[in-house]
Write a protein that binds this DNA or RNA. Structure first.
Length: 210
DNA sequence: ACATTAAGTGATT
DNA sequence: AATCACTTAATGT
């Protein structure tokens, strides 16, 4: 297991840092649908995603939720960084899209590593930048795009991160992720099917070109 | 065969 | 684009 981790980080971090990660990190498995973090959770660790896909959602008091972006191998949750420094509670929900493997590091190491390791600083700033970009993209689609375009982006993103052409999901689940109604999703999907872009079956969507 | 859940559709706001 | 009310289709027991 340790060698596996070393290989995983080898191109990213200096070896001393890798040793520390291996020493203090705890590897954890998440089943599809399990929460890595819920709204209101106190953040006591930060994650490196080793395998699998997570989706990051924003959720309000009324229970409305919207998918912001997906996380994949090598990613981390930048929202955590903001919160790592102070004792803030999570403003987002992170849910496993597939069975996943994560290495968790206690936030206590964060400050120290930021000072000690250049590669860590770079990694943090880079992923922060990346998440910010995705966040802006998410805001953009939410504010300016109509539902048909939002659905297209959703399907596109999902196919990309999961590296599949067939999604095993229901119209209702998509509706939850986009915070709209099932009927609307069904109609828009039907339209895409008529355009020859997808093929619909029960609990399944085959995607040809998006 | 029957019940349950997913998906399709017209009409209305 | 949302909601209602209803139908049809697929799937599990």
């Amino acid at each position: 297991m340790k060698d596996k981790l070393k290989d995983f980080f080898a191109h990213q971090f200096e070896s001393k840092l890798i040793d520390e990660i291996v020493k203090v990190g705890k590897v954890k498995f998440y089943r599809e649908g399990e929460h890595l973090m819920s709204v209101g959770d106190k953040i006591s660790f930060f994650p490196f995603l080793l395998r699998g896909v997570f989706k990051v959602l924003s959720e309000d008091d009324a229970g409305n939720e919207v998918v912001l972006y997906f996380l994949e191998r090598g990613d981390t949750c930048a929202c955590v960084f903001i919160n790592s420094l102070s004792e803030v509670k999570s403003c987002i929900r992170v849910v496993a899209e597939t069975d996943s493997e994560v290495i968790l590091i206690d936030v206590d190491h964060f400050d120290e590593w930021m000072v000690k390791y250049k590669s860590f600083r770079h990694y943090v700033l880079e992923s922060y930048n990346l998440r910010l970009k995705e966040m802006i993209e998410a805001i953009d689609t939410l504010a300016f795009k109509k539902m048909d375009q939002r659905l297209l982006k959703y399907l596109h993103d999902k196919v990309q991160v999961l590296r599949v052409t067939t999604l095993n999901t229901t119209h209702q689940d998509i509706a939850y992720d986009l915070n709209t109604s099932r009927v609307v999703v069904s109609r828009l999907l039907k339209q895409l099917e008529n355009e020859g872009k997808i093929k619909l079956k029960r609990n399944r969507i085959e995607i040809f070109d998006i």
